[in-house]
Design a protein around this nucleic acid. Structure first.
Length: 275
DNA sequence: ACTATTTCCTGGATGC
DNA sequence: TGCATCCAGGAAATAG
């Protein structure tokens, strides 16, 4: 499922392929779940705009749009925001390419390429922000400094796993990278966030950044439906130490990995290495 | 004010 | 082989 490294990979792929592109037409194929903004508003906001920049904020892909043709200044202009949910894909392909099942939106560029939003489970969301200024809240894990990071978890009674998943605290960490980060510092996912020592939080801060950076380098984790903007798979799933490895041996001590449900999510850990 | 649980979706895996 | 059931999970909504 797309978390920060996957969304970053897709956003970079999109940036490479469509920056500077002019949007000629927009097709919206479904009116329901995937639309946070009304279809007509999405169409009118995107049409005749130039894509000035594509970047990532948390798990959101953000397209900064420019009004004047060829104008590359982002300024305070409209934005198109895509959240991929669980199974969402953003693909760049030729306009002539076959339309696959579950295609919910097609943005056609003057270059002859399309940007297509495909989502089987429809947990993804499309929205537009005509005045710009989109802000999902939370802090970027790769930018936050240690004191701010420690402050996020102060007094939190919720399990550290849940806190890591809370996008209003850290944005971009999901189930895979929360489990992998906790495995690296030897802390169980059920521990209350407030019970972590200063030292554990410092190591967590570092571990989160390392895991995310390593995953970005490998193009993300391809489990479920994830692929990059050109349809390519990632390879970080081969580096997972605990996620999806229930009853398989811990890579360090051979103890079988345990799976528990926290906040309705599978959480994986080594009962011997993680305290 | 917090924290915990439920809900939305459908493809793939599992079980009888 | 076929059909029913379960499971995956991000984040908003709802409940406690």
């Amino acid at each position: 499922m797309p978390e920060l490294p996957e969304v970053e990979t897709i956003a970079r792929g999109l940036a490479q392929r469509v920056t500077g592109g002019r949007i000629e037409s927009v097709w919206i194929g479904s009116k329901r779940q995937p639309l946070k903004s009304p279809a007509a508003e999405i169409v009118s906001t995107l049409s005749d705009k130039t894509i000035a920049r594509v970047h990532r904020m948390g798990k959101n892909i953000v397209f900064d749009l420019a009004t004047a043709p060829g104008c590359m200044t982002p300024a305070a202009n409209a934005q198109w925001v895509v959240h991929l949910g669980m199974t969402g894909r953003m693909l760049v392909c030729e306009a002539a390419a076959e339309t696959v099942k579950h295609t919910h939106a097609v943005v056609s560029l003057a270059s002859g390429n399309d940007i297509r939003f495909i989502d089987a489970r429809m947990f993804g969301k499309l929205s537009v922000h005509p005045q710009g200024g989109f802000d999902p809240g939370g802090v970027e894990p790769l930018e936050v400094d240690l004191p701010t990071f420690i402050q996020l978890f102060k007094g939190k009674k919720t399990p550290i796993k849940s806190a890591l998943l809370d996008q209003k605290l850290l944005r971009g960490v999901g189930n895979i990278y929360a489990d992998e980060s906790l495995a690296r510092i030897g802390v169980r996912p059920k521990r209350r966030a407030s019970s972590l020592t200063r030292d554990e939080l410092a190591r967590l801060w570092k571990a989160v950044q390392e895991v995310l950076k390593e995953a970005i380098q490998l193009g993300g984790s391809s489990v479920s439906d994830y692929v990059g903007a050109a349809g390519e798979e990632g390879f970080f799933q081969l580096q997972h130490r605990v996620y999806g490895r229930e009853s398989e041996p811990c890579l360090k001590c051979r103890t079988p990995i345990k799976r528990v449900v926290i906040a309705g999510r599978s959480s994986h850990y080594c009962p011997k290495c993680q305290k």
